[in-house]
Design a protein around this nucleic acid. Structure first.
Length: 579
RNA sequence: GGACCCGUAGCUCAGCUGGAUAGAGUGUUGCCCUCCGAAGGCAAAGGUCGCGCGUUCGAAUCGCGCCGGGUCCGCCA
């Protein structure tokens, strides 16, 4: 059986050759040896830096070592040419047969091509985690898409992924929600809420119309039972009811974007079942919590600053800049304490790796959270990675779209999805590195041209499908050796980088690389298609040449398979035809 | 004052964890469609990789210092 990842396979050959030339190199040195695709076709198909990496530790000259590698590797049956180049690269030109042998592999395993094999590595990805106080707005969109695509990518790379949503239902915000709903409840009963609103510190915080039906539902359920009664009678009931409804709404919004979490974790449940103490105990046991007084932040002393003794976590022992408060001066816990508990809970649930996807405005919390996880992990060596998402500016006709609640334009995520569709939203967001600010161009998102990458990639898939509909079913059991045109080989070379790309993008936690790969793959396919326009000999379906046609159908089918699996990672639909 | 993110072609952005001559789209310029695969295609021009030191065989990539933009900085979640 041919190895799915040709780069990994050849890396094995290189390492074996290296071992005979320079035995006993340290694993850290060998880990840096790469076999990569070349940028310039003049450098062959693949290149390795092995000689340059190993030269110093082996006490040898890199060019000399490269020459030795060339000699060993030239003996490989799949190698047409191996040569030393530049400061000590070894360039490898593979035989067409070796490259073509990947096509039956793709056709045999279908969408399984590129599936990683690190079975059972558990990882938890937490994303969105919006307050359950209203519908999702455009600002949540990026985290939702990035977190979801990252989860798919990790699963593709072989992780056992749990997609998690943390419900912030324990704080003051959900109480404010309950009070706002109470106002709508009174209105539904045709009672005047003004007198009640007077009594609420800060007034009605959530004035959106979306709470009106919730108030009506409560009026229907309870009648006037809670009208003009003290908060204590209804606050918990109204909060729970409203939070449940808000979560329903949020899940619908997410579903419209194609986002579905596996687990919804309630902060309140964690607090009520003693999770906070359980988590903090782990730190107390290690003597990492003490009472102390923090210095005011330099250069920005708040006017009302007074030194106060608080319970602090020794974050500085784990790489943070200052120790962080876990309790307020009145003794109640800070949000950070609950976050520690939540991450402790994830450690207890057996996740050796976890990822949080946050908005960039939480960048200041990265160090303390990582410090906390390091402290909690103990000998489990659990580790937390953070993916920060910068803000998205929505643009139309070259100008930013005002996101004003009063103007009612593009506040809610739903508006954006309705305007351009979930596929465009997801793909365009994933065409940017998550930690760079981005402009979301509404005009480009709906354009049916090359400048719209969603269209361009989906169009490539539709073209594949259109060819395959007109042809006999593809088979892995055919002779592919008639595939020789430069455009065909370029497409094939791109296809075989897919397993490597999955691995590297997952390792870097960068789903955007998949979007760029798909764009490049689509570009290679369109180039072949266009070449067939001028040169009829390059068309896929050749009358009277069944062998050539079968080989080409195989290439097209393999292209469709990889396009589909890439789009599946991004959560974008592979369309059958363009309408 | 400090922490974190960003700075690459006129514009919007990639650059495969340090590799060879830094790429794509768009815009600009010039060619190409009777029809059979043009919701386009081919080609050209366009760069002090914010600036300066340093690390090394080799730096857009790593370190330090500046400049510019953003996010944030005890008892908010």
């Amino acid at each position: 059986m041919q190895d799915e990842n040709l780069f990994a396979a050849l890396r094995g050959e290189v390492l074996a050759a290296l071992e005979t030339l320079a035995p006993g190199l340290a694993p850290e040195v060998l880990a840096r040896v790469e076999v990569t695709p070349t940028k310039d076709p003049a450098h062959g198909d693949m290149a390795t830096n092995a000689a340059m990496i190993a030269a110093k530790p082996a006490g040898k000259n890199p060019r000399e070592l490269a020459a030795g590698l060339v000699e060993k590797l030239s003996a490989h049956p799949g190698m047409t040419k191996a040569e030393a180049a530049g400061p000590g690269f070894v360039n490898l030109t593979l035989s067409p047969a070796l490259l073509l042998a990947q096509l039956p592999v793709i056709l045999a395993v279908q969408e399984g091509y590129g599936q990683g094999t690190s079975r059972g590595r558990k990882i938890n990805v937490e994303y969105v985690s919006a307050n359950p106080t209203g519908p999702l707005h455009v600002g949540h969109c990026r985290g939702a898409v990035v977190g979801d695509a990252l989860s798919n990518l990790l699963a593709k790379a072989g992780y056992d992924v749990t997609k998690e949503f943390y419900i912030n239902d324990a704080g003051a915000q959900v109480l404010a929600l309950a009070r706002s709903v109470y106002v709508r409840y009174l209105e539904a009963l045709k009672l005047s809420p003004e007198a009640y609103i007077e009594t609420v510190p800060g007034g009605m915080q959530y004035g959106g119309a979306y709470l009106i039906p919730i108030g009506e539902a409560l009026a229907e359920k309870y009648g006037d039972e809670y009208a003009e009664t003290p908060e204590a009678n209804w606050l918990d009931i109204f909060r729970d009811f409203a939070v449940a409804r808000m979560l329903e709404m949020i899940r619908e919004d997410l579903a419209a974007l194609g986002v579905n979490h596996d687990v919804f974790s309630s902060e309140r449940a964690l607090v009520e079942n003693g999770g906070v103490e359980r988590g903090l105990q782990r730190l107390r046991d290690q003597g990492l919590i003490y009472r102390g007084i923090l210095e005011p932040p330099k250069g920005k002393t708040p006017d009302d600053w007074e030194p106060r003794e608080q319970e602090l976590f020794r974050a500085t022992e784990f790489g943070d800049d200052v120790d962080r408060p876990i309790a307020k001066s009145d003794g109640s816990y800070t949000y950070f304490a609950n976050d520690i508990a939540y991450h402790a809970d994830k450690v207890f649930r057996g996740f050796p790796e976890m990822i949080d996807v946050w908005g960039a405005d939480h960048g200041g919390y990265v160090k303390r959270m990582q410090a906390a996880v390091k402290a909690l992990a103990g000998d489990t060596k659990a580790r937390l990675d953070l993916v920060l998402c910068q803000i998205v500016k929505v643009m139309k006709d070259g100008a930013p779209v005002k996101m004003s609640k009063r103007a009612g334009t593009f506040v809610e995520l739903r508006d954006l999805i309705d305007e351009v569709g979930p596929d465009a939203v997801r793909f365009l967001i994933l065409m940017r590195k998550s930690d760079a600010q981005m402009d979301f161009d509404l005009n480009a998102a709906v354009a049916q041209t090359r400048e719209n990458p969603v269209f361009y990639v989906q169009y490539a898939h539709a073209r594949c499908r259109s060819v395959l509909r007109a042809a006999a079913a593809p088979s892995a059991d055919v002779d592919f050796s008639s595939l020789t045109a430069p455009e065909e080989m370029a497409l094939l070379r791109r296809l075989i980088t897919w397993p490597r790309l999955v691995e590297q993008a997952a390792e870097a936690r960068e789903p955007h690389r998949v979007a760029f790969f798909l764009y490049d793959l689509a570009s290679d396919f369109h180039a072949l298609w266009n070449a067939g326009r001028d040169n009829t000999a390059l068309r896929f379906l050749q009358e009277d040449k069944p062998a050539e046609t079968a080989a080409r159908i195989g290439l097209v089918a393999a292209t469709a398979i990889v396009l589909r699996s890439g789009l599946a990672v991004l959560g974008v639909n592979p369309v059958e035809e363009m309408r």
